[in-house]
Every structure is written in structure tokens, then in C-alpha cells.
């Protein structure tokens, strides 16, 4: 398991400052979506009971409905858990020395990017949209002096606060006060 006490390529004296994930509202929207998916067969069942009630008693149709319903609910339950994993296993770790971006990309595919704070050139926070404004989550883009692509924290809570944390740590890193 991943541990905050055993970070990948840990440096001496490195301390974890903050661990970030996407704002919980993002996952809450997915929960609502799956509740809607779970409710769909109930509506279909009610429609069938009123239009073709004989299907619910048929010696062949009833077993097929049972199998289809079971398969459907098992599928969306598994799909929901994969959606949870996609939310839960994507993390950003801000330490006193670097930023670590851990991204789960499908099955058996995990990407870890690191950026040392003394290479941070510019930081931008961005909140867009109604729900993002209400619940105060958004993106933080970190421009680097390195040749690697810029870091981006996606849909994190309090992006302005995250920006300030990184700015403070980056200036300390540049001054050699780590």
C-alpha cells in the first residue's frame, strides 16, 4: 500500500505538507449518477407491470428478467467501484521539497510525476462554473522551468489556498530554507 511515511524516492528530511484529491463534490455527482442508473430498472419494471404484466409471470420471461436485472445491478455496482477507484487513487502530494502527482490511468497503469519546488516558476489557480464557485474547487496549474509538462491539480478544494501553499514552499526552496 502507498504510505505517507514511505513516499517514492523520499529525500532526507522531507515532510508531507498536504495530500489532495479532487473535491468530494466530483465524486458526489458520480454517486447521483449511479443512483439514477439503479433507479432506471424500477421505472422499466413499473412500465412493464402496467403494459405487459404477463411478462412478469411467464415461465421463460420471468427468469430472463431475473437474470437481466441481476446482471445489470452487478455491472453498475462494479462500475461504481471503478469510478470510486478513479477518484480515490488520483492524488497530489505536496511535501516540503516537491510535488508528487499520482494518477491511476485504467487497469494496471499508474503514472507518478514529481516536481521539485525550486523549479516552480509560476502558479495559477482557476475556478470556473456554478458548482465550482459555490463549493470552491478548481484547478491549480504549476508552470515549471523544467522540460516536463506543467503540473496541474484538477478540481481540488480551495485552489487559492493550495496556490499559496506551493508559492510559500517554492520560495523557501529557492532560498535554500528547506
Amino acid at each position: 500500500m502507498l504510505s505517507l511515511n514511505r513516499l517514492p524516492n523520499a529525500l532526507p528530511g522531507e515532510k508531507v505538507v498536504k495530500v489532495l484529491r479532487r473535491d468530494f463534490f466530483i465524486f458526489f455527482k458520480r454517486i447521483l449518477f449511479f443512483i439514477l442508473l439503479a433507479a432506471l430498472p424500477l421505472g422499466f419494471f413499473l412500465a412493464m407491470a402496467s403494459v405487459y404484466p404477463i411478462l412478469l409471470d411467464g415461465p421463460v420471461s420471468y427468469p430472463l428478467i431475473i437474470l437481466a436485472g441481476s446482471g445489470y445491478y452487478l455491472f453498475i455496482w462494479l462500475f461504481f467501484f471503478f469510478s470510486f477507484l478513479d477518484y480515490y487513487l488520483d492524488i497530489w502530494i505536496i511535501t516540503s521539497v516537491r510535488i508528487i502527482d499520482v494518477s491511476q490511468e485504467g487497469f494496471f497503469s499508474r503514472k507518478v510525476n514529481e516536481l521539485t519546488l525550486n523549479r516552480v516558476q509560476d502558479i495559477e489557480s482557476d475556478i470556473q462554473g456554478l458548482w465550482a464557485t459555490i463549493f470552491k474547487f478548481g484547478d491549480v496549474k504549476v508552470q515549471t522551468a523544467a522540460e516536463i509538462e506543467d503540473f496541474e491539480f484538477q478540481q481540488v478544494a480551495d485552489p487559492e489556498g493550495v496556490k499559496n501553499i506551493i508559492m510559500g514552499l517554492a520560495s523557501k526552496a529557492r532560498e535554500g530554507q528547506v
Binding site: M1, L2, L74
Partner: peptide, 28 residues
């Protein structure tokens, strides 16, 4: 039809184990 359902259950179980593997290996 039950055989087809059992085949579905088999693959569902495999993917379920894959999901559990991921959260155990990569979760805090």
C-alpha cells in the same frame, strides 16, 4: 441462459478482484 449468466459472473468476479487488487496495492 443460466450458463450465460454464470459466464458473466465469472468475468464480473475477475474484474472485481482486479479492482480489489488496485485499492489494496495503491490505496493509503
Amino acid at each position: 441462459f443460466l450458463f450465460a449468466y454464470l459466464v458473466f459472473l465469472f468475468f464480473w468476479g475477475v474484474f472485481g478482484l482486479i479492482a480489489l487488487y488496485h485499492i489494496i496495492k495503491f490505496g493509503f
